[in-house]
């Protein structure tokens, strides 16, 4: 198989992985909004007035970007947005780690409270770094198979 035949399938895999993770991570934060607030507050990065909007808005953003990636619309823009989200998460987790906070990242709901010695910063950083690289690769080569955008408009050369 030639590489220009394989690449769209790899892009599809990247879309499904990144989109799936974002939708699940965002959706898990919806049922317990009070826990989402505590998880964001636990980072001690934001003034109290911004904690709620970020705790409620960020999951919505994750879900929207994730759905766009799964469906395959505006793939390049969505991949860039996903990369930006990963950078934001990495900055948050990295700063919590650097400051020695004993928190769970709250990446998939819950968050905030964690027993001393049960933090998982290396794994969290590794996961988000890997997803960041996938997002960047997808932004570079966004052309993928089974993308809804192809059905909405004629293929452009």
């Amino acid at each position: 198989m030639r590489s220009d035949e394989v690449r769209p399938w790899l892009a599809l895999a990247a879309r499904l992985l990144l989109g799936g993770v974002l939708v699940v991570a965002g959706a898990l934060k919806v049922p317990d909004p009070a826990a989402a607030v505590r998880a964001v507050r636990a980072y001690r990065l934001l003034p109290e007035g911004l904690v709620g909007p970020v705790a409620f808005g960020l999951p919505a953003l994750e879900v929207v970007v994730g759905l766009a990636l799964l469906a395959g619309v505006l793939v390049r823009a969505s991949a860039v947005a996903a990369a930006v989200l990963m950078v934001v998460f990495l900055v948050g987790i990295g700063s919590a780690w650097a400051r020695g906070l004993q928190i769970d990242c709250g990446c998939f709901g819950g968050g905030g409270q964690v027993d001393a010695g049960q933090t998982a910063y290396p794994a969290e950083v590794a996961r988000d770094t890997a997803l960041l690289l996938v997002a960047l690769a997808l932004a570079r080569w966004p052309h993928s198979r089974l993308a809804l955008a192809h059905r909405l408009e004629p293929a452009t050369p």
Binding site: P33, A36, G52, F56, A60, V63, V73, L74, A77
Partner: peptide, 25 residues
Amino acid sequence: LGGSIAAAVVVIAVVVAIVVQTART
């Protein structure tokens, strides 16, 4: 057009989420 629709969807989703979740908490 696509960009505008996408931006509108993002803004609406985020605003609705903030309003609903604020009411719930």
